Amino acid sequence: MTLRMRTPIALALAASTMFTSSAFAEPSQELIDAAKKEGMLTTIALPHNWCNYGGVIQGFKDKYGLQVNELNPNAGSADELEAVKANKGNTGTQAPDVLDVGLSFGPAAKEQGLIQPYKVSTWDSIPDDAKDPEGYWYGDYYGVLAFAVNKDVFPEVPTSFADLKASAYTNSVALQGDPRTGNSVMMAVYAAGVAEGGEPGADALNKGIGFFKELKDSGNLVPVNGTAQNLAQGTTPIYFDWDYNLLAVRDELNGNPPIEVVVPSDAVVAGVYVQAISAYAPHPNAAKLWMEYLYSDEGQLKWLDGYCHPIRFNDMTERGVIPQEMLDKLPPAENYAKAIFPTLEQQEAAKAAVAENWGKEMGLQ
């Protein structure tokens, strides 16, 4: 994704306690004082209605009293890196301090020397497969592939990819489009392949193609793109997308018709964004304080309030710090605990496989 259109239990007490010191750690007074002396944080590409960033920014300002200078809220990930490049020697208001980019842009920014390392105090509770081991970039929030179900059509809601093979779902299951041209659609096919036992990468993607070919042959796959309108009308009463998009659709429809968002029990595949600090940040201490806020329980909960799963979701669930009213708006937490984060290499292999095999297997041009 390059455009910011924004268009992935209980443990034993001892294991849970491992995270206690880091999860509740506060930034040092020295860092807070240094950030306040700088007085400002410059962000870029953070629309207020995406992941509740409006609430996140306001929470940071309220907590620390810093000014937040917001550049181009609708910029894309590539635009963010270009803004860093264009302002290497600029300490003014056009130079971003911090970045929020798609996964592939984190390693690219590191390779180009555009970001600097910093490990937040809650570092250990960020999953290893969602962060650079040296601290140059780290996952901030994610969505998981899910499907929405029109409950007027299907009062008994399917809970897995395997369930969707049943004859009860004839002419009912839809994708958003062609997986060769849309990342979320490709990842839906990938997730189906994981459910079918596929190994990460091309194997999962090819098994996912086999899954949807089976749905097509049985008549379960609708040859119409899944949309909110088609979901509501019953044209595509089941369709796939990232969970945060589907949860927003559910809320917008407000029970007319009733919608249930299902995280499939047999495959939980996540797509993650990452945070980083510019190597040329004019306000490096404010940037570090921003990161501390984002990765605190308070900051993570503000993202969750916008239906974007904070990267420390599993840790916070295990410690029981997520308000029940938030959890009640989401699919069951135990499914999210199984989320896997495909690597860049696995995603590239999947893209190659879908480009080569989707058309010929599905009988398309």
Rank of each mutant, 00 (worst) to 15 (best):
K85D: 14
P310L: 00
F313K: 01
L253P: 03
F24K: 04
E318F: 02
Q347M: 08
A281E: 08
P47L: 03
V120Q: 05
W358K: 08
R180E: 06
G226L: 00
F211H: 03
D62V: 01
H283Y: 03
I209R: 06
L145H: 07
H309E: 07
Y273N: 13
L221E: 06
V189C: 02
V149S: 04
V194E: 15
S104L: 13
A281H: 10
A281G: 04
D124I: 01
P331A: 12
D178L: 07
K119D: 05
I259N: 13
M326L: 14
P47C: 05
G255M: 04
D128L: 05
K360H: 04
A228K: 11
G102M: 07
L3G: 07
A78D: 15
F24R: 05
A95T: 11
P8H: 12
R319N: 01
K119M: 09
A267Y: 04
E30I: 04
A86G: 15
G39P: 07
G271L: 07
V149H: 04
A349Y: 01
L247T: 06
T343G: 11
I238C: 06
L11D: 09
F19D: 13
A353H: 02
V263Q: 09
S77K: 02
I32G: 01
L246E: 05
L81P: 13
G55D: 10
